[in-house]
Design a protein around this nucleic acid. Structure first.
Lengths: 132, 132
DNA sequence: ATTGACCTTCCATCTACTGGAAGCTTTATT
DNA sequence: AATAAAGCTTCCAGTAGATGGAAGGTCAAT
C-alpha cells in the first residue's frame, strides 16, 4: 500500500514515515513506479513506533524495541532485559504523571478567581525541594 | 545562590537553566560579579519546569503552567482551564503508558531465548490496527 | 601566586521532526 | 483525449529544545 494509507493506518505523518526510512528504522518495498509499498507488517511496526515515540521512547530505544517486536524468535535475552528495564521506566513515569496530575488538580481547585495569598501546595513543594 | 547549586537542587543541567533564561522562562537576579543569583522561589520554579518537561509538556505549555504555579492570586480561570485540560491529557498519557507497559511485559514474558514462531501479542496488535 | 572549580558569553551541533519547492504518476472530470 | 487534482518522489531549509565546546573572567584553597 502507498504511504498515505500507511500514514492513516499507523497515525504517523507521511513525512515522519519517510524520515524513519532515512534513518533506517523501517525500509519498505518499492513498487514499479518508485512509490513506497508498505505491507501490513510494516504498518504494525509503524503503529508500534507511533506509540513508543508518543510514550517518550527515543528513536534509538525504538530501534531496539522494534527489533524485539519484530523478531519472531525473540531469542535475545539482552533485548528482553531492555524491555523489562523500560517497564521500570514506564512505572516511574506513571508515578510522576500521577503526582503531576494531583498537583495540577489541587492548583486548579485553589484557583477561584479571587485573591488567596497563601497556597498549601506551593509550600508543600517548597518543602520537598529543600533536600540537597 | 549560584547556578551550580540551583542545578543540583532542581535537577536541571546548568546549560538548560541558561537556555530557559534565553527564552525568557525564568530570569534570575544577577550578583555584583555578573553571576546568576537564584532565589529559593526560582529553584522551585526550575524544579517545576524539570518535572513538567520530563512529563512531556512543551516549553510553551510550561510557560503557562509556570504562570499558574507562580501566580499567588491564581485569578485567571483561563489558566485554570488549561490546568484541567492538562489533567485530562495526563490521564490519557497514563492510560497509554499502562497499555505500553502491559505490552512490553507480555513481550518480555514470551522471550525465553528459544524459538517460538508464533506470538499471541503480535496477533492481537495486528488485529487492532486493521480498522481504517 | 597559581591551581582548579566555577562562572560568563557565543557559536556550533544534535535529535526528531516539519515545511516547502520542483517535478513525476495516477485518478477523476470534462 | 485533455486536463486538473491528488498523491507520490527527492532534496534542502527550518524548527524545538536542548547540549557541547571554546575562550575567558572569578573565586576559594593550597
Amino acid at each position: 500500500m502507498n504511504i498515505g494509507i500507511a500514514s492513516k493506518k499507523s497515525g504517523l505523518p507521511s513525512k515522519t514515515i519517510r524520515y524513519y526510512e532515512d534513518i533506517e528504522l523501517l525500509k519498505p518495498a518499492r513498487a514499479e513506479n518508485g512509490y513506497r509499498d508498505y505491507s501490513l507488517e510494516d504498518v504494525h511496526s509503524l503503529t508500534f513506533l507511533q506509540r513508543a515515540r508518543n510514550l517518550g521512547f527515543t528513536v534509538e530505544e525504538c530501534r531496539l524495541l522494534l527489533s524485539l517486536y519484530n523478531d519472531k524468535n525473540r531469542s535475545s535475552s539482552e533485548v528482553k532485559s531492555l524491555a523489562l528495564h523500560k517497564v521500570a521506566t514506564i512505572e516511574k513515569k506513571i508515578a510522576e504523571l500521577s503526582a503531576m496530575k494531583k498537583m495540577l488538580t489541587s492548583l486548579a481547585k485553589n484557583c477561584h478567581g479571587d485573591n488567596r495569598p497563601d497556597c498549601p501546595i506551593l509550600d508543600e513543594i517548597a518543602g520537598e525541594t529543600e533536600k540537597v
